[in-house]
Amino acid sequence: MFEAKLTEGLILKKIVESIKDIVTDVNIDISPSGISLQAMDSSHVALVSLNLSMDGFEHYRADTNMVLGVSIANLAKVMKLADNNDQITLQADQEATHLKIIFENPKTERTTEFNLNLITIDSEHLAIPETEYSSVVTINSGEFSKICKELFSLSETVQITTNTDYVQFSVEGEVGSGQVRLGHNDSEKKEDQTILEVSESVQQQFAIRYLNMFNKASTLSSFTRLCLHQEQPLVVEFKIDNLGVLKYFLAPKISD
């Protein structure tokens, strides 16, 4: 038996909206300690990794480990039934054929229930090695989203360069070439800060269209954390306060 209740259901709506353009069918791993999900996009270029801790739920019960095969596209349709200030409860029995989703609005006395049919997915799992990232950039999530959108109109690829003094996003294409350079900025307004933790410089290239899809999650957190290592995929991380973390992994592009 699994049951989890989230008072702020909007968070779950935002999480589903943040991943529905990247992954289609996913196995949701339910355990007594929380909910996790790991899935790649069809081209195996991007991977979504979600970890939600039981502590973040108003009520959480999972007697055993379970795997719930879910079509994210269908889950996104069901989540549309939720109002932004609904409380959301997820329920599934052992060997369940469906996931029950309940939206409650205690103020308006409105309750919505939906039984989402579960699917069987034999998805491969990826072993993601623990990596010591030699560059970690913490940047305002709205600002990073804006930079990616603007650069995408100039080139489909961005080169990210880090060093101790700045992080640089550079593009070149038939329009021309240029870069956005952000230095360490510890402005008193916390959410405007750019924090660089660079022990080794990194220079890699990425497809911006994936970054734009990842940035859908910027509504979940005021900060985006970019973790880079010269030999590893980029990690774009959004911490979900009091609940967990949503991470996106993106493989680099290499110059021929």
Binding site: L47, L126, I128, P233, A251, K253, I254, S255
Partner: peptide, 14 residues
């Protein structure tokens, strides 16, 4: 030109 690498080059599938 630039070639897009896949995650399978970095992460072991099991």
């Amino acid at each position: 030109g630039r070639t897009q690498v896949r995650l399978d080059s970095f992460f072991r599938v099991y």
